[in-house]
Design a binder for these strands. Sequence first.
DNA 1: TCTCATATTTAGAATTATTCTAAGGTGTTG
DNA 2: CAACACCTTAGAATAATTCTAAATATGAGA
Lengths: 146, 146
Amino acid sequence: MKTVTQDRPYSQTLTRLREAGLRPTRQRLALGRLLFDGGDRHVTAEALHEEAQAAGVSVSLATVYNTLHQFTEAHLLREVVVDSARTYFDTNVSDHHHFFLENSGSLMDIDGNKIAITGLPQAPDGTDVARVDVIVRLQGTPRAAE
Amino acid sequence: MKTVTQDRPYSQTLTRLREAGLRPTRQRLALGRLLFDGGDRHVTAEALHEEAQAAGVSVSLATVYNTLHQFTEAHLLREVVVDSARTYFDTNVSDHHHFFLENSGSLMDIDGNKIAITGLPQAPDGTDVARVDVIVRLQGTPRAAE
DNA sequence: TCTCATATTTAGAATTATTCTAAGGTGTTG
DNA sequence: CAACACCTTAGAATAATTCTAAATATGAGA
């Protein structure tokens, strides 16, 4: 008896796209699968594009950009601003923060429940806090870790 | 009796440049004065360039970039990464964090002594914490504030 | 299944911030 | 004030991202 998961490798992504009101095109399914099958990931547009090529998925860089932005609007991804040179997209959309390895340009999640920030001043009148980002910038190379 | 400050408007910047081992050229003095005479500031290269032009200081955009980077290396400025579209430089180099007004693209300091972050996981083996940045992203427009 | 309106993809041009290059100008030191 | 290393600069070059407009694919309905 075959497992259901093997029969429907795209199912998770398909459902996510449907729920987001995005047509499940070949490109979006393939990119969605690369992004969501497996653990949490941090990607740049260029990196995802190369990964798609390597996986034999033909998709233009423009579409990678479009898709990443659409996924972000649909809250399937979120943008992480850590480096003014490039934009990172994070598949973990829950409350969390980041370690940023400045040498390699890679990111690691810090669970949002684990840390607490106290003493934050009130937001100015007329404004609302959209989000609080904590970025721990690291120097050096981690031993035996991704 | 004239005040000393009036007689030597550049003195502070001159001293800072000397201490940083940077030649006090016309451009660096002028940009330094724009940056450091007055309270804490957050500027982009483009904005500082325009400001210099408006003040009648002839300086190229390339020099503005060079100078901002040299000042940053000399710890007279620090870079703030909040927006992937442009780089901000902050004249406040003491321990602090930021409110970022996403509508206007402006920054406000949050005193580093006022806030505390607890529960941060250890940095991975082989790495050191270079800095912790907290960015509070705000939506909306503050009433009567810069 | 076929058709059609609409959404999507795409190549390539355009944009934008930033960096580079190489040539001429300036500050400092002896 | 000569000499040299450091600076500035115009303009070209780069790199990430967005735009454009034309071609293609999708989903709904007959």
